[in-house]
């Protein structure tokens, strides 16, 4: 009987385990065979009954908690692994915060120093005697400072440049004596301040104040500040000349 052959495959068909081609053939047969269709329906109902009957026992919460606890070390480990990135994140946040505050603090300090230097520069421009040693000759100006300030410095050769040396005078910043040199480029005057490193720090964050441009660097324990109402390019040129003199 061909129906017997089909019935043998009915379970696999209903379990979804029959090859597609065979499954198609069987479902074709079921459409035409009332006996096999009834058998199929009966087996589907059995499957459903067993499924419903089989889902019978549910664990109580206390037991679930006990098992969860018994595998807790693994869980704790996982929490640890989560903690490290969290901690690292928090620390990164704090570090960024401190850096930002620091930067802000630095910026405020720079601003204060720069406006002080700008004040000194303006005072010099406004003075009836802007310089105490009047000379375009660096070999005159440099020795003049000897004994007046606690350090010495070199001045550049300006012959082939647009700058001329006007002169110099002793200046004070944070109770420290330093040198102020006046240079001229076209109609503009530029002040170059030289202070010992203890008296002033380099300006890093700010490069202009009250329309003055400024440059600053350190060399051999001295802080150099170049400030004036000239273009940044002119300031850079003068800075390079002074740096090259060492």
């Amino acid at each position: 009987m061909i129906c017997d052959t089909w019935k043998e495959k009915l379970d696999a068909y209903l379990d979804g385990e029959l090859a597609p081609a065979e499954a198609r053939a069987l479902s074709e047969h079921l459409r035409g065979c009332a006996a096999c269709a009834a058998e199929s329906l009966s087996r589907v109902q059995q499957k459903r009954l067993v499924q419903a009957a089989g889902r019978r026992f549910t664990p109580n919460p206390a037991f679930r908690a006990r098992i969860e606890q018994s595998i807790a070390p693994r869980r704790a480990l996982r929490w640890n692994r989560l903690w490290f990135p969290a901690l690292a994140g928090a620390m990164a946040f704090v570090i960024v915060g401190v850096l930002f505050l620091n930067l802000n603090h630095e910026r405020r300090n720079d601003q204060r120093l720069l406006s002080e230097l700008a004040d000194l520069h303006v005072a010099t421009l406004a003075s009836a005697n802007p310089v105490d040693v009047v000379s375009t000759d660096r070999h005159t100006v440099k020795p003049w400072f000897a004994g007046k300030i606690p350090f010495t410095f070199n001045l550049p050769e300006l012959q082939d440049s647009a700058f001329t040396l006007v002169g110099g005078k002793v200046s004070y910043l944070n109770q420290s004596a330093g040198a102020e040199l006046i240079f001229r480029v076209r109609q503009h005057q530029i002040s170059v301040f030289i202070f010992p490193e203890g008296a002033a720090e380099n300006i890093r964050a700010v490069q202009n104040a009250a329309s003055f441009n400024a440059r600053s660097w350190s060399h051999n324990g001295l802080c150099y500040f170049v400030i004036g109402d000239v273009s940044p390019q002119d300031l850079d040129k003068l800075s390079e000349l002074i740096k090259s003199a060492g």
Partner: peptide
């Protein structure tokens, strides 16, 4: 599979 395993174990 906790609930299912428990059910199976009971059976």
């Amino acid at each position: 599979h906790f609930d299912r395993l428990y059910n199976f174990a009971c059976w």
